[in-house]
Design a binder for these strands. Structure first.
Length: 934
DNA sequence: GCCCTCACG
DNA sequence: GACGTACGTGAGGGCT
């Protein structure tokens, strides 16, 4: 697109809009508006759009810009923090309701078809300075749309500023009026005067007035500092002599950098007409009715109507051409690659998929990358394909006709890290980690899997093949057609490139189309906030945790394995003797026959498959009278610990890091909980003494400790809040033993000196309530008659009637809407709620449990998302999440600091989105290993 | 590939 | 009146 644009030069006029200033001004100028459909805060976005619209429609006549860009700050840390670590340190975090609006303002800018620019490590001011210098040097004119005094140093020949609010032009005279010196000496004055807002120290006691006087007296700052002895006022003289170094640092802080590395040209900033569809689409999505109407009128277009049909009814409408995997591009040379990169830059987004040698993203190697920008088009860039090897010893030689991996990554990196280009993935955490291993931190990202999860949790799973079939009516090429299966399976690197291209490129196109399908549904289905605040931000957080891994002591596990093997052999002998014959103790079928046929024990219940149940609770009952089932229980526990933990865990130790790297699935559980796989580190034993020793094998690195923080009773607290149970809320506020309190209320006994059995029963009921209690379930759990269990439940509901109200209301809501929601808006669909028969009970209990379990999951997600920023100055890393627990690794000396900071984040994680009526309590511990820390 | 069992919250 | 149930997960071993 830019090839035809004229070179930037004389006669051109560049407008540089200070986007961050727009945002903050918009935020503070407007009341906290929220989007009506889902409560997403959008006040700043609304103000921002109004300002942009006003800017775009202002009549400027011959002074109209030929080129324009909106520039944003990328992140809080910049190169200035290396000069002075306290730079901007006292600047408060942006308000919670502003944060989710930052990405939206970028989207808004793109919707207006204005170039959107930000660069990591640089402030917007530096980018503005760099562009202004370049434009001025090229002979063009520059107007900076901002009233920021820090930018006034740029004013001069060919560069002026425009205060967008006062509509006032700022030239050298206005600068002189403000600083008492000309633009070229502004930094000298700022260096002396300092700036309390940005925490630029300056010289104490010297303000702008004094500073400009001094500079005017001595000419410039360096001269002033050299000849400070000549200053007449003694105090002022001493201040300058004492603080000369601090003043010089201050100058470096306020001096804007004209050398920001930029990967685009001035030509590419050429002014473009807004695209009516894109702009109206965005404004409608934001539900800005007035502005949408105004824009539609001006552009002579129809304002689109947001439809809000539930996703389950959404047909796989094939408005776009069917997916055809035969015509994809295979990118084999630099020109083709550059053309794709130009396309991506023009569109501002790209769907991306990586192909690798395996599923373990900590070990798999990159084989190729596929991209798609427009439906109907996609490409595959092979980079790591090797010759199919019949020869086992033949070195895996790269196939000809592939660009070198380094070159491809180097070319793509600016795009992948460009804050103005959205990278769309399906399960993008996978690709993020693969690229992170090549030093690329991809941002910003979108994930179609997480979009589907926010919309469809509870309805179906969110894998690409399933989504493509459901929503695009397209059956993806099965990977098996390329790599085979079973014994003859080959790696993706061995697949011929002409076979890999349609498969890989298709994945990118499907991802793009899923994004086109889902993205507009998030607002219409009111789950944008969930997606933006609970799903999307988890990707880099989890990726970092997974890549950090946790150290595991393989020797410790091996010793335990040996001990377990001995114990099992001994138990096996005893069991065989008791049975009078040899059989496979690990076979429930054989065991059932021994127990209930050969030995003729009572209580043999056959399930639907005709097999006897030999589950632990059956065996526990039998164990009261008989030795054999007791031995089997012991054997089973040992076998479990050995096979699942002490034997399996060492095989997961990464050869290079020496640590175990789990993988968390964000969209696996229906309720918002994470799930941990390969290995599952969320079910490491803790309940039995023998099992707990396995936790001793999870150790901190030398010089470090493991710290574990966990929420105390978080689900019961959420229940107390959502069901508004005064007695429960008060107990949590008073910090008293919640189960004892329950027992006391139910049975009328004092909390002091309570019978532990009574407390245990109350505890079981408390948990039962969370699960959607039934008399049968409670009777089994407590091993009491069903009628007795039912009596307990009745008493409980009498004492806490609000709980029954809550349960009834939740089920009624689910039946009405087809879903339940958590406190934070997470939606869990309940498709089975209107079933009849036995399945109805299960759906009913799941619906009761989901908002409670889900809200707890939301809260710890919020804590995790805030954690990296909160602990960034501590020598600590977040390693694991176990539903209500976070595990960190921290240098010895910083244990207490970490606990204080992390606890604060966790205890306040619900706020400000939700003001809980109960406190959240967090327990903490630390030690050389996980057993000690827990 | 399904079922059973059991580890966790 | 009978039915069959605690909620949410993942992994390993047996068996077809």
């Amino acid at each position: 697109m830019t090839q035809d644009a004229p070179e930037f030069g004389k006669g051109c006029h560049l407008h540089l809009i200070d986007g961050s200033a727009f945002i903050f001004r918009a935020y503070h100028a407007l009341p906290p508006l929220t989007r009506k459909s889902d409560g997403l805060p959008v006040g700043a976005v609304a103000g921002f759009c109004n300002m942009l619209w006003k800017y775009v429609t202002d009549e400027r006549g011959s002074d109209a810009p030929t080129h324009a860009a909106v520039i944003f700050d990328h992140s809080a840390k910049t190169f200035r923090n290396e000069i002075y670590d306290l730079y901007k340190a006292n600047r408060p975090e942006p308000p919670e309701d502003l944060r989710p609006q930052f990405p939206l303002t970028r989207e808004a800018t793109r919707a207006f078809n204005i170039s959107c620019i930000e660069v990591e490590g640089y402030e917007a001011d530096d980018i503005i300075a760099t562009l202004a210098c370049q434009a001025r040097d090229a002979g063009g004119a520059v107007t900076i749309i901002s009233s920021d005094k820090d930018l006034m140093q740029l004013v001069g020949d060919g560069v002026d500023m425009l205060d967008p609010i006062k509509a006032k032009l700022i030239g050298p005279d206005e600068v002189r009026e403000k600083f008492g010196v000309g633009p070229e000496r502004v930094v000298d004055v700022q260096a002396l005067a300092g700036d309390s807002v940005d925490n630029v120290p300056g010289a104490p006691g010297i303000g702008i007035k004094t500073a400009s006087q001094l500079i005017n007296d001595f000419g410039d700052l360096e001269t002033l500092l050299e000849r400070a002895e000549e200053i007449k006022q003694p105090k002022r003289r001493q201040t300058l002599i004492d603080h000369a170094e601090q003043i010089r640092i201050s100058k470096r802080l306020v001096q804007l950098d004209c050398e920001t590395p930029l990967d685009f040209t001035l030509q590419s900033l050429e002014v473009r007409d807004p695209d009516a569809d894109a702009l109206l689409g965005f404004l409608t999505e934001m539900e800005f009715r007035t502005l949408t109407a105004r824009v539609a009128e001006k552009l002579g277009a129809e304002a689109p109507v947001v439809t809000s049909s539930p996703p389950s009814e959404a047909p796989a409408a094939p408005e776009r051409p069917a997916i055809d995997s035969t015509g994809y591009d295979c990118v084999r040379d630099r020109d083709a690659l550059d053309r794709w990169i130009a396309q991506i830059r023009e569109a501002g987004h790209v769907a991306i998929d990586t192909e690798t040698t395996g599923l373990d993203e900590m070990q798999a190697d990159l084989v190729g990358i596929s991209l798609s920008v427009h439906a109907g088009h996609a490409c595959y860039i092979p980079i790591g394909h090797v010759a199919g090897s019949d020869d086992l010893f033949g070195a895996a030689a790269l196939v000809d006709g592939q660009l070198p991996m380094d070159e491809v990554l180097k070319a793509l990196r600016p795009v992948l890290e460009d804050a103005a280009i959205l990278k769309i993935g399906q399960n993008v955490k996978y690709d993020w980690k693969i690229l992170a291993r090549h030093g690329i931190r991809m941002a910003p990202i979108a994930d179609t899997m997480l979009m589907s999860y926010a919309l469809n949790a509870g309805t179906h799973n969110h894998g690409m093949d399933e989504l493509a079939e459901r929503y695009l009516g397209h059956r993806c090429i099965p990977i098996k057609e390329l790599i085979g299966s079973g014994k003859s399976q080959i790696g993706f690197a061995q697949v011929a490139i002409d076979k890999a291209t349609p498969y890989a490129a298709e994945d990118a196109e499907v991802t793009l189309r899923l994004w086109q399908h889902f993205a507009p549904m998030l607002p219409s289905e009111k789950v944008t906030t969930v997606y933006e605040t609970l799903e999307r931000p988890m990707v880099p957080v989890l990726a970092d945790m997974e890549m950090a891994g946790i150290r595991v002591d393989g020797e410790h596990l091996k010793r335990m394995s040996n001990a377990f093997a001995q114990k099992m052999a001994q138990l096996e002998d005893e069991i065989h003797q008791l049975a009078g014959e040899k059989f496979n103790v690990g076979s429930p079928k054989q065991l059932g026959e021994i127990l209930f046929e050969k030995m003729g024990l009572e209580g043999g219940k056959q399930g639907k498959t005709g097999a006897y149940s030999t589950s632990a609770d059956v065996l526990e009952d039998l164990a009261v009278e008989h030795d054999l089932p007791a031995r089997v229980l012991d054997w089973r526990q040992t076998a479990k610990l050995k096979s699942t933990y002490t034997d399996a865990l060492p095989t997961y130790v990464h050869p290079e890091t020496g640590r175990v790297h789990t993988s968390y699935s964000i969209a696996g559980a229906q309720t918002g909980r994470l799930a941990s796989t390969d290995p599952n580190l969320q079910n490491i034993p803790v309940r039995s003494e023998e099992g707990r020793r396995i936790r001793e094998a999870f150790v901190a690195a030398p010089g470090h400790r493991l710290v574990s923080l966990d929420y105390s009773q978080i689900e019961l607290r959420i229940l107390a809040h959502v069901a508004e149970i005064p007695a429960l809320k008060q107990a949590f506020k008073d910090g008293i033993d919640i189960h004892a309190m329950t027992a006391s209320q139910m049975f009328g006994v004092p909390v002091e000196g309570m019978d532990p059995m009574i407390r245990r029963q109350a505890k079981a009921i408390n948990f039962g309530v969370i699960y959607g209690i039934s008399g049968y379930g409670l009777s089994r759990n407590l091993r009491i008659p069903r009628a007795e269990a039912q009596d307990f439940i009745n008493t409980y509901f009498e004492r806490f009637p609000e709980i029954r109200d809550y349960m009834d209301k939740t089920v009624a809501d689910a039946k009405e809407a087809g879903f339940v929601t958590t406190l934070f808006g997470r939606r869990i669909n309940t498709p089975g709620i209107n079933q009849s028969g036995p399945a109805a009970g299960g759906a009913r209990r799941a619906a009761i449990n989901a908002p409670i379990q889900g809200a707890a999951a939301d809260i710890i997600r919020r804590a995790m998302i805030r954690m990296p920023e909160a602990i960034r100055d501590l020598p600590a890393r977040m390693l694991l999440q176990v539903h209500d627990e976070l595990v960190f690794e921290v240098e010895d000396a910083a244990v207490d600091d970490l606990i204080a900071v992390a606890r604060g984040v966790m205890e306040n994680a619900a706020a400000p989105a939700v003001q809980l009526s109960v406190p959240l309590d967090v327990d903490a511990g630390s030690g050389a290993n996980w057993a000690e820390a827990h």
